[in-house]
């Protein structure tokens, strides 16, 4: 049985991971898009994103689009696997109570 991941379990990080996991493997979300979508501040998203990056769950890449700097965040293979494991663990808790 998969265990709950303490890094992902934090509510803000859980939503960040869920949002990124809903994208295709070839897609990356722009920082401000993710910030507005989840109703976070720059500092809040930045801090949680750094924590997830340290764990190797997400990758953060800076790029220029139409000469403007943009930051893109994507789930890594390790992150996708960890998130699936976390969801399985949550479902098994529910299953055990049924």
């Amino acid at each position: 049985m998969a265990d709950l991941d303490p890094v992902i379990h934090q509510p803000v990080r859980l939503r960040i991971m869920a949002s990124l996991a809903s994208l295709h493997e070839t897609e990356a979300a722009e920082f401000t898009f993710l910030r507005d979508l989840l109703g976070l501040t720059d500092g809040n998203l930045g801090a949680h994103a750094r924590k997830l990056e340290e764990e190797g769950y997400i990758s953060i890449e800076k790029a220029f689009v139409q000469r403007k700097p943009r930051t893109y965040i994507a789930l890594t293979g390790k992150g996708r696997k960890a998130f699936k494991g976390h969801v399985t663990a949550l479902e098994s808790i529910l299953g055990g109570k049924r």
Binding site: A18, L20, V87, E91, I93, G96
Partner: peptide, 20 residues
């Protein structure tokens, strides 16, 4: 973790994914 907490977390995951 209690079942209702797990349910809440799963609901948050579903909502964030749908929104995105």
């Amino acid at each position: 973790m209690e079942a209702d907490e797990a349910q809440l977390a799963l609901d948050q995951i579903r909502m964030a994914a749908e929104q995105t």
